[in-house]
């Protein structure tokens, strides 16, 4: 096992382990936040695994997850709006942590890859992940206000 794989292991244990616990217990708001953070954690694990196994094509997994993961969180934010709106969770700290971790991992993997098309793909994945995480957090903490009140109309 090389350094990339060890980093992936640590990130999986420290970043994703608590997500599994947080999504299984507590109020709905916290569970949605955990799911959103889990997307970021696993996406970064995928990038690290691709680098660790020396398989550049594995970054497609991270790309697809960076596109679809936040969409999944938006689905929850939309359809569970009436459960979320009484106590919207505040996620600024967690969102900042995810953005910081994403930047660190993407920069490290980019440095190891070197310039080229592969690096562009990594940067796009990172940018999509950060943007998706920020927007999904925003949606969870009140992006669909009064959605339930009008949808029965």
């Amino acid at each position: 096992m090389n350094g990339w794989l060890w980093t992936a292991t640590v990130l999986l244990a420290v970043g994703f382990g608590p997500v599994v616990w947080a999504v299984a217990t507590g109020p709905v708001g916290r569970r949605v936040v955990a799911q959103n953070f889990g997307t970021s954690a696993v996406c970064l694990v995928m990038l690290l695994l691709a680098q660790g196994y020396q398989r550049p094509s594995y970054t497609d997994l991270a790309l697809v997850l960076a596109v679809l993961g936040p969409v999944g969180t938006l689905v929850y934010a939309r359809l569970l709006a009436d459960d979320l709106s009484p106590h919207p969770p505040h996620t600024n700290l967690l969102t900042a942590a995810a953005a910081l971790a994403t930047t660190a991992v993407v920069v490290a993997v980019c440095a190891a890859t070197g310039p080229g098309r592969a690096m562009v793909k990594l940067l796009v994945t990172g940018a999509l992940l950060v943007a998706g995480n920020v927007i999904a957090s925003r949606a969870v903490s009140g992006g669909y206000r009064n959605a339930e009140a009008t949808s029965h109309g």
């Binding site: 596109v67 936040p70 969409v71 938006l74 934010a77 939309r78 943007a131 998706g132 927007i135 925003r138 949606a139 009140g142 992006g143 669909y144 206000r145 009064n146 959605a147 009008t150 949808s151 029965h152 109309g153």
Partner: peptide
């Protein structure tokens, strides 16, 4: 169905994505 109210950043993100 009545139209939904969606926060502007979420709407923009969906249209770009």
């Amino acid at each position: 169905p009545a139209p939904e109210r969606v926060a502007a950043p979420v709407r923009r993100y969906a249209l770009v994505m």
